[in-house]
Amino acid sequence: MEFDFSPITDNWRFLLRGLELTVVLSLATMALATLLGLAVGLGRLYGPKWLRVVLGFYVDSMRAIPVLVVLVWTFFAFPILTGVTLPPFWAALAALTIHIAAFVSEIVRAGVTSVRPGQTRAALALGMSGAQLVRKIILPQAIVRILPAYGSILSVTIKDTAIATVIAVPELMRQTETLAAQTFRPIEVYTTTMIIFFLILFPVTRGVDAIYRRVAHLGQS
């Protein structure tokens, strides 16, 4: 069997454009999912009863529904129901954000509840308000504590962007499929994309671990 990598060397710009979109989609999803997840997590911890019930149902739903189903529903069913059509990139961003945010909210909740009660007592004894307690004392420690889990979600997010190919978002996976089909070189093209994903994700996971090791003591009360 002979390998021919010329389809990749000839079309690297085509793949690079896909990679760029993958990175943009990943970062945008992670940024939005972090904000939404933080809000949902705090809402479930400190919000009124009805809000906790609603948010709990949302999180349970996202844990039970495959992200691919959420994505396809957002792109194909949502426009029919509402009359609002989302371009593929925005549909992918919305679906991934809604899905990932649920998992972010769960680690936020776990992080906050893991800060020991004595820290709350110490802050309250100083005279802090509930909001000051959460902002100044609890959240900074919780964020440090959830870093490893957050790193896992980050790598899952980057990998999950590949499913956006099913709604024709021209990210790395979509470009890869197109190239493989046009050049009849699936082995070389798909292998290249595997390696690209690995080269992105390996430093990300290792990097988060390294950061955590340096700051872990800041979260240990």
Partner: peptide
């Protein structure tokens, strides 16, 4: 109660310094 707490200092068995 916050006003009262601001006028009382408290020291705990486990210190409870803020680690960050």
């Amino acid at each position: 109660i916050r006003r009262v707490r601001q006028r009382m200092g408290m020291v705990f068995q486990n210190f409870e310094l803020f680690p960050h």
